[in-house]
């Protein structure tokens, strides 16, 4: 069975831990963490990822810029990106989708929602 790699970019350690807990319920997925967009980009430069989950509001480099950079990256331009938004921030959602995000999850996040989205994008049964 294929082993998937996922990069979680989120400045809140609480949210990161919640997302990692949710991803741990999917078989054959390994997770790498980053607490801002720049660290996320460094991780992307060092390894190949099958999926990126990123928050929008982060210090140093926000999630929108990260999506933009991923879409111009040779290796990761086709990798699905899930953005995490706050409910009600439809502008952020629309901008992220326009920049090439594949899907979005709204806070407060629910594990089944994360699992379903990840499985759908990675085409896991």
């Amino acid at each position: 069975m294929k082993e998937f790699t996922c990069l979680v970019v989120e400045d809140s350690s609480m949210m990161r831990q919640l997302i990692i807990f949710a991803l741990a319920r999917i078989k054959n997925i390994s997770v790498t963490e980053a607490d801002d967009g720049v660290t996320g980009l460094k991780q992307l430069a060092n390894a190949r990822f099958d999926l990126v989950i990123t928050d929008i509001n982060m210090p140093i480099m926000d999630g929108l810029k990260l999506v933009q950079r991923i879409r111009t990256d040779k290796v990761h331009k086709d990798v699905p990106v899930i953005i995490i938004t706050t409910e009600g921030s439809s502008e952020d959602k629309e901008r992220a989708m326009a920049l090439g995000a594949s899907a979005y999850i709204t806070k407060p996040i629910q594990a089944p929602q994360v699992i379903a989205k990840v499985k759908e994008l990675l085409k896991i049964e």
């Binding site: 350690s13 919640l18 807990f21 407060p108 594990a111």
Partner: peptide, 19 residues
């Protein structure tokens, strides 16, 4: 699922506060 989600939230919250 909902209870598990709630418990995870509580666990993560406690873990982070004392971490």
């Amino acid at each position: 699922e909902s209870e598990l989600n709630d418990l995870t939230n509580l666990y993560v919250a406690a873990f982070q506060l004392h971490g």
